[in-house]
């Protein structure tokens, strides 16, 4: 009826692209991470673990690790907490609820560069809307993106604004899977709204929360665009995320060895997170269901 080759031919295009643009580059990155190269020299000498040693002994690298981790640790709970609250309110299929869901979801499919540009304006010191508002209240202007203590918070706000809708959509799907009787039962028991939320909603969407938690942590460790447009990692490294450092080391300083070493470390970290997800999460989901 058909040749034994058929399935191979069907997967060939996808597999060859995956091989060329995903798997071979991993090997290439590992190889480059043991070498010294600046794009210019005709040779790339082998330097062993030197690039890793330099990286791990640099202030810059640990600053990036700290900033990225801080970003993940602060922004993910805020996102998930807000999203669950809003989702539990929007779970009903009424017209305003559907419209509002759409409004909240829109930013998550919108261009990140656009969002970063618009918020750069919002938080601009001189002509920004936020400061204009503060001034109209009789308060002073705040240098949002120039102050190392504030810039990371601005990045967190912008990222939350963008991603919130996605989290809400997922939570709503999770909530809609919860049998309505459970709510009715809780309501009959005379549970107040906050009580029902804590005792019924939160535990029941735990699998969804785990899923979102891991997905958003992985995503948080790969944040780049908002920072690149708004702060370039500044001021004074206060928003210098790992991928922004990778881009700078690779494509501004052209230290290809160290850039590759950084890419490999990031790779290991994210794979570990992903494996953690499939392990722990897989078990949890079954347990809860």
């Amino acid at each position: 009826m058909f040749s034994r080759l058929t399935p191979y031919l069907l997967v060939l295009p996808l597999m060859s692209f995956i091989a060329v643009f995903t798997y071979i580059p991993i090997a290439a990155s590992i190889n480059l991470s043991f070498r010294e190269w600046d794009f210019l020299s005709p040779t790339m000498p082998f330097v062993g673990l030197e690039n890793y040693r330099l990286l791990l002994s640099s202030h810059e690298f640990w600053n990036s690790v700290r900033v990225t981790a801080l970003f993940a640790v602060i922004s993910v709970p805020i996102r998930l907490g807000l999203a669950l609250m809003v989702a539990s309110y929007l779970v009903r299929e009424t017209l305003p609820s559907r419209l509002l869901r759409g409004a909240l979801f829109l930013p998550s499919v919108t261009s990140t560069v656009s969002i970063a540009v618009v918020f750069s304006w919002m938080f601009a010191t001189d002509y920004g809307m936020v400061n204009a508002f503060l001034v109209s209240l009789g308060l002073g202007r705040v240098p949002w993106l120039q102050d190392p203590q504030l810039a990371l918070w601005v990045v967190i706000v912008v990222n939350t604004w963008k991603q919130l809708g996605y989290d809400i959509v997922i939570y709503i799907a999770g909530l809609q899977a919860v049998p309505q009787e459970l709510y009715d039962a809780a309501a009959v028991d005379g549970g107040r709204k906050g009580h029902v939320f804590r005792r019924v909603t939160v535990p029941l969407v735990m699998p969804t929360t785990y899923f979102l938690l891991v997905v958003s942590v992985i995503e948080a460790f790969q944040i780049f665009t908002i920072v690149d447009v708004m702060t370039k990692g500044g001021p004074a490294g206060a928003t210098d995320m790992l991928v922004n450092m990778l881009y700078r080391v690779g494509f501004t300083l052209f230290d290809i060895g160290q850039g590759s070493a950084l890419a490999v470390l990031l790779f290991i970290l994210l794979i570990a997170l992903a494996l953690f997800k499939s392990r722990v999460l897989g078990r949890r989901v079954h347990y809860e269901a």
């Binding site: 810059e60 120039q146 001021p235 004074a236 490294g237 300083l253 230290d255």
Partner: peptide
């Protein structure tokens, strides 16, 4: 070339009183 490209971040940290 490397020194000048790296000096910007050093200066930011100093000027903003971070280090």
């Amino acid at each position: 070339t490397w020194m000048r490209a790296s000096e910007y971040d050093v200066w930011q940290a100093l000027a903003l009183g971070q280090r």
